[in-house]
Amino acid sequence: HPLQDRWALWFFKSDQSRAWKDNLHLVTKVNTVEDFWAMYRHIQLASKLSSGCDYALFKDGIEPMWEDSRNKRGGRWLVSLAKQQRHSELDHLWLETLLCLIGESFEEHSREVCGAVINIRTKGDKIALWTSEAENQAGVLYIGRVYKKRLGLSMKTIIGYQAHADSATKSNSLAKNKFVV
């Protein structure tokens, strides 16, 4: 069962002695539903990774960094999790994110989706869905509403979208939300 796009899984493991990009490794690429599950079963659950590690699943040809030409005008829907959610919800939310990506869940706006990243961090894990054009309000909001629903987040939970250009200028990665849903 072929996927609309070929997807690349990346793994990041923090090593302060090396440059950021040298810690980023391409693991594998998948382009069928069957290959996706073979990959998913083969890798550690996100909740089992050590702090400082990331997974990223991006469309083939897009590197999981702001600087990529398909990302630099874009931004991300960010889901910040409390520490205790690592063991209760993290793996479920990440898998749901992956299924949104490979299943093309955002109708015609799926073409604006670049990928998703999960950050495993001691202070709280994060999952983000990256899109290519922060100025496309209609597309970004459509994706955000569908994504929030797919994650099963309650009405009172607010998630924000930040433009990468804003995040890049904030050393503490607390860029203001451009949109919220």
């Binding site: 996927l3 609309q4 069957e34 599950w37 073979a38 299924l99 490979i102 299943g103 869940s105 797919r150």
Partner: peptide, 20 residues
């Protein structure tokens, strides 16, 4: 056409043996 798959369809493949 566009290859769109809903979550239930994708989940049905989770435990199927893959041939790769």
């Amino acid at each position: 056409g566009k290859k769109q798959y809903d979550r239930e369809f994708l989940l049905d493949f989770q435990f199927m043996p893959a041939c790769i």
